[in-house]
Design a protein around this nucleic acid. Structure first.
Lengths: 144, 144
DNA sequence: CTCAATGCAAACTATTTGCATTCGA
DNA sequence: TCGAATGCAAATAGTTTGCATTGAG
């Protein structure tokens, strides 16, 4: 079941409606590799679809997060970002505080340890956030 | 060297000034175990020190983050929180999305793996953030 | 038809800033 | 004394909401 099917299913179950705008937003969102803020996505969409409003983009992103298609990220720059979430290929982030570039990484060992930590506190993990902040290789060199 | 000494040193090096307000804010902040937002700390301070303004609290917290005494946290509820940072007793968080309670944990194994990941990308870690969201033991039971 | 979704503008919330005044070094 | 810090109020930025209108089921 792909993301679009997941969305349709979710909409149906909740008695919501599947509009044209939502489909356009969802597709544009899924086809991107970036970490979009509401504004980023709104601006991108506006080129081809000037009739789609900021609020709709925002509400749709929230909806996608709700049904597990998007993950909300917050890198501490005051902007909430969203990224397409794919259960079977989870990853975390290295964030360069100098140039803002973002590198994705995944480390199954860490995920496993997380589970152990949670178990220690009888805690049920629903999602997590793991970000390393610092200097990427390029900025590291420059600072020398 | 304790936190207050670190602060004094930082202030001196930067040619800043060490005011009464800053000392009060710093002490109150350090003596707390909580994860304060600017507002939380402002309200707490106001009881004993009604003359300290919100902006001063905010600017001081930013300053503390800058000199490494405080860590900025963002649990995704739209409020930036700060916690006293102690280099030698670092910890991360389990955040209950149901009741909002926060459990601290530390797992040296994970820290070690982080370093390995960073090395893989020739990335220099300055700080990190690692949060697990889900249900704490109490809320987990209730949901059954 | 009915009720959810949209688009716009306005409202809100957290954070930041301008500026006259105060105060530390 | 001099410039950094303060406190207030006002500005900003991101996010959310109210409401008349549109449109999907």
């Amino acid at each position: 079941m792909d993301q679009i099917a997941v969305f349709n299913e979710y909409v149906r179950r909740k008695g919501l409606k599947n509009t044209n705008q939502r489909m356009i937003i969802l597709e544009t969102f899924l086809n991107s590799k970036s970490h979009y803020s509401t504004e980023d996505l709104y601006l991108k969409l506006r080129k081809d679809h000037p009739r789609i409003g900021y609020a709709t983009v925002h509400r749709t992103l929230k909806l996608l997060a709700e049904c597990g298609i998007a993950l909300e990220l917050n890198f501490g720059d005051g902007q909430t970002r969203f990224e397409p979430l794919n259960a079977d290929q989870h990853h975390d982030h290295l964030v360069c505080t100098e140039c803002g570039s973002i590198i994705e990484f995944s480390e199954p060992e860490i995920e496993k340890l997380q589970e152990q930590v949670a178990a220690r506190y009888n805690f049920k993990i629903v999602s997590h956030r793991h970000e390393l902040y610092g200097l990427c290789s390029t900025c590291k060199e420059k600072s020398n």
